[in-house]
């Protein structure tokens, strides 16, 4: 679905992403790994419009999209989470979830007033959906809490739930299991697999190799901003360049 061709981004002197090409066509869950500072988050920032590439192309279903604004990227169906989770701290857990669906009638002033029955219907539907997801994530009892009061792990779960609520074409997860306890890691993995079964497509940056191998069909490896390998989990685990990048 997403094709990235020869994308490059430098910050001052450092090439954070250097001439990378990846094709995610046909993949349900793709993985992105690499040592710290290898440019993984920068690649996500490029795909979701938070920064503009110096050169190269990104196409989504055949349309060129590189360099557009973040909200355009989101509305075209690319929704991401952040490495350090970014929930809305002074919104309740439920409101964090309800914010996510795209194209809500109640979010535009004219339709808020002129199409109130539709606004009301959408809210009810979204609320049901959100309850179901929060239940699956095991944080339904926290729904009226300010999201800022949740533990770090719960915030990461909420961020995943919020991304699912948006029903995007692809969810990009930036280190979803980093810094959270093993029980929540299992909840996270279960959730991703359940959503995959419902047809949701993912692109996941992940450090935990067990998680990567369990989830991903195909893995891309970055080192110093360059793609040094790609393949199935088995191929990647035995690839000498990958082993060197991680050990050296």
């Amino acid at each position: 679905m997403i094709e990235i061709k020869n994308i490059t981004k430098s910050f001052g002197g450092t090439r954070a992403v250097s001439d990378c090409s990846l094709s995610l066509a046909g993949l349900k869950i793709a993985g992105l790994i690499g040592p710290n500072g290898s440019g993984k988050t920068t690649l996500f920032n490029l795909i979701t419009g938070l920064i503009r590439p110096d050169s190269g192309e990104i196409t989504l279903e055949g349309r060129r999209i590189e360099g557009r604004m973040p909200h355009h990227m989101a509305n075209m169906g690319l929704i991401r989470t952040f490495q350090l989770s970014r929930v809305f701290p002074r919104l309740t857990v439920m409101d964090n979830m309800l914010l996510a669906p795209r194209g809500q009638a109640g979010e535009r002033l004219w339709s808020l007033f002129l199409r109130f029955p539709r606004v009301h219907r959408e809210e009810t539907e979204h609320r049901e959906k959100a309850c179901e997801l929060l239940e699956m994530l095991g944080i339904i009892h926290l729904r009226d809490q300010f999201a800022g009061n949740l533990s770090y792990g719960q915030q990461k779960l909420l961020e995943l739930g919020r991304a699912v609520m948006a029903q995007p074409k692809m969810i990009l997860l930036d280190e979803p299991t980093a810094g959270i306890n093993p029980r929540l890691i299992q909840t996270m993995i279960d959730m991703i697999l359940k959503m995959k079964a419902r047809g949701q497509i993912f692109f996941i940056i992940e450090h935990n190799m067990d998680v990567v191998v369990e989830l991903c069909e195909r893995i891309f490896v970055l080192d110093h901003g360059e793609k040094i390998a790609e393949g199935s989990p088995r191929e990647i685990q035995t690839d000498p360049r990958v082993i060197e990048a991680y050990l050296g």
Partner: peptide, 11 residues
């Protein structure tokens, strides 16, 4: 609360 997080949700 977080302008960037709102933007990447399409607002």
């Amino acid at each position: 609360d977080d302008e960037t997080a709102a933007a990447v949700l399409g607002k």
